[in-house]
Nucleic acid binder design. Structure first.
Lengths: 218, 218
DNA sequence: ATGTATAGTGACCGGGTGGTCATTCGCTAT
DNA sequence: ATAGCGAATGACCACCCGGTCACTATACAT
């Protein structure tokens, strides 16, 4: 039995896009529970019944919109992994981070939804979506570190798990700092332009590479 | 004119405490908008009108409860700064992080409110509270780095702002990772006991101190 | 012109919300 | 006993919510 098309999928593309954009905006601004279907349909100029015909429930709208976006995450990561194969770990991490910045710039509202989901236990689909995202980005970094370890780019005595953790969280937090105020202490990142982002990132990666200490390891 | 006591401040301490605890729990579980005053009063067994007499509005409840907690943050930080004066930077950072872990263990619901506030632009009082908190912890770390810099504990060529940023966000994220699932890639921190926390933290600080690279800086 | 399938509609429902206020309660001083 | 007063009450209000469904509009095949 071929999957029969939903009402929503029969709409012309322009209408579908308008609805997706407006719904994404609403969830990005208000999170899930505060988001209002009434507001969505008012801004779209369509009847409330229509939206429920398309997606069943409010949660269904979120699942469709966000699920779609999560799928788009994998492609650029895979590409980077292939393009930079065998290269320097920190250069690869740099590429990943900048790819993240590109994604956020291209889909800022999707990223806002992700951030709200992160720290709100009540957010529907939280566990499912976050698991998917973490699996994607976590496994990726893990393999990068593994390869770097094997090619002797890293100190042999380090705790691999902690190294992955440090890189993972640093990248994640770096992107958050650019997008959200109050996360970088002196606001040296929030809202920065591309040029500044790259400079700061290089500086940060240098610290990770060589450490902060002025005293050589004995 | 002496500040005249509010109705709430005239209550006996046990009742005041019960109310504070219950309100904190409600906000911690549901955030601000989803939190329900009806639920609070039902669980407390008091009339809804009473709560509004005490605090005026729902937001007033939050301000009272959370504002009180934020004030308590400063004392332990100041103490650590004094007790460890002149000591090794990383040891001082270690102390601060563990103090943070202690605070979270003692006031888990306050920390949950803080986390929800962090990434929700609609949260009332967000800007005011976050500014206060960041000012407290940010300036603190800044002074630690400054002192370490002057006593030659750090490489002289590093970007001070980025060093502060790296330490600040690493500590912050470390605590988040312990408290929240999905933030540490392979769940090596979430829900860990004190012993594990200390071991991991030492490992992490070692990475920050000496860097990840196996190739010495030229 | 008629039938059929699909898309679109919006008044309506039950329920929860933050907030109000006229009233009652409980204690203390006289 | 009684007067006075702050604490406590809960029915009530206007509002907004997600979701429903009987109905209409449109397009195409016959």
């Amino acid at each position: 039995m071929p999957p029969q098309k939903t009402t929503f999928e029969n709409l012309d593309q322009s209408k579908r896009e308008r609805i997706m954009i407006e719904a994404t905006k609403e969830f990005a601004e208000y999170g899930f529970h505060q988001a209002s279907v009434n507001r969505m349909v008012n801004r779209l100029g369509i009847a409330k019944g229509s939206l429920f015909k398309y997606f069943g429930t409010k949660q269904g709208i979120l699942e469709y919109v966000f699920g779609h976006a999560v799928t788009m995450l994998k492609a650029p990561l895979k590409q980077i992994r292939l393009e930079t194969e065998g290269g320097d770990l920190f250069e690869r991490v740099r590429q990943v981070t900048l790819a993240g910045a590109d994604f956020i710039e291209a889909h800022p509202n999707i990223y806002r939804i992700y951030l709200k989901m992160l720290l709100q236990e009540n957010f529907p689909m939280r566990e499912r979506f976050l698991t998917r995202i973490r699996a994607t980005s976590g496994k990726f970094l893990h393999s990068l570190v593994q390869e770097a370890m094997e090619s002797g780019q890293l100190r042999s005595d380090i705790d691999t798990d902690m190294a992955v953790y440090l890189l993972d969280t640093t990248v994640d937090r770096f992107l958050q700092s650019v997008a959200v105020p109050f996360l970088d202490g002196d606001s040296i990142l929030h809202g920065a332009d591309r040029q500044t982002i790259e400079t700061r990132l290089d500086s940060l990666l240098d610290l990770l590479r060589h450490g902060l200490s002025g005293i050589p390891k004995t």
